[in-house]
Amino acid sequence: MADTPQKRLLVVEDDTALRDLYVQILTDSGFTVESAVDGQEAFDKMKKGGYDLVLLDIILPKVDGLTVLEKLSAEAPPEKPNYHIVVLSNLGQDEAISKAMSLGAQGYLIKSDYTPGQVVEQVNHFLELGDNSSAGSTTA
C-alpha cells in the first residue's frame, strides 16, 4: 500500500458540514480527495476525469446528480476515465436508484444509514471490486 500511488477521490456534496466531514475522514484514511459543491462543478471535474471513485449526491444545486450522469453518458468518454461512481444520497426513491444504476453507478448508499467509518469501509469495498474503466463514460 505504501508503494502504490494514493487513490484519487471526488466527493460531490452540497451540504457543507457533510462535505467537510467526508473529505476529512477520507483524507485521514490515505486518499487524495477533491470536492464539488454543485452539479455543474461535478460535471466539469468528472469530464476531465481520472478519479478512482466518485461519491455523488443526487440533490444538488444547478444540475442534479442523475442529470450529471446522463450528460456524461451522452458525451464522449473522458480522457482519463472515472473508475467507480457510488451514489451517496438521502433520497431513497426506487426510481432514482434504478436510474442511477442504469447510468453507470456501481452502488447506491443512503447517507443516514452509514457512520463516517462505514463510509470509508464502503469506499474500500468498491475500490477492491476492481477496475471498471467504462464507468461514467459510454454506458447508455
Partner: peptide, 10 residues
C-alpha cells in the same frame, strides 16, 4: 435525513 446524518456523523 440530512440533518440526522450530520448529527449521527459528527
Amino acid at each position: 435525513r440530512t440533518p440526522m446524518t450530520a448529527i449521527k456523523s459528527y
